[in-house]
Amino acid sequence: MLRTLRRSAALAGGCAAALGLGLILAAGSPAAASAQTDPNNRYTAEEIHHFLEGFYGNHGPTAWERKHLVSAQLKEKAAQNPDFDVLLCAQNTPRDIEVGEVTTAQSARVGWATITTTWGGEPRTASFTAYVDLDGSKPMKLLDVYCGAED
């Protein structure tokens, strides 16, 4: 849904952008999180999937998402690698991004999914893993990214 809202906002302009931003802010607020989590106050695989689709969109996270929806630890990791986009495991913008199935590990309190990026004029893909905290008492954020090998 957030992915669709991002597309609509980009096409429709200012009013749709403001609406989309409001929905993203509401989805990331603690009040919204507590209303959507499982009975143990953890984010569900479905919620994480929607978050990652909205976060990555079709071409990568926006400056706002990078500032507000990323853990302090991951921001530091990104700052230490100025010539490499740690959040995309790349040096430029992908043609398309797909979020795979989400796995949750309740004992580790983390969920993750494989993110697949498509590049260039010929079909070339790369994959990496994105991790999200399951704690539903906090706004959802991208915790870490593990850059895997190219396909």
Rank of each mutant, 00 (worst) to 15 (best):
D96L: 02
A105K: 07
I115G: 10
L87P: 05
P82V: 04
R124H: 06
I48P: 10
T117Q: 13
E76F: 00
T125D: 06
I97E: 14
V102G: 10
D85R: 02
G28W: 04
T116H: 15
S29F: 01
P82I: 04
E47R: 04
V99R: 07
F51M: 09
A126P: 03
I48E: 06
T104W: 05
G54N: 03
L74E: 05
F51S: 10
L69G: 00
D83L: 11
H68M: 10
N40V: 10
T103Y: 11
A126V: 01
A32G: 15
S127A: 09
S71V: 02
Q106L: 14
T104R: 08
F55L: 03
S29A: 14
P82S: 01
A33I: 03
A113P: 02
D38I: 10
I97N: 12
V86I: 08
T125V: 07
Q91A: 10
D38H: 09
K67C: 08
R124K: 09
D85N: 11
A78E: 05
R42I: 03
T37D: 11
I48F: 13
I97D: 10
L87W: 01
A35I: 00
P61R: 01
V110Y: 05
F55D: 05
N92A: 15
T117V: 08
G54C: 08
T117E: 14
Q73L: 09
T116W: 13
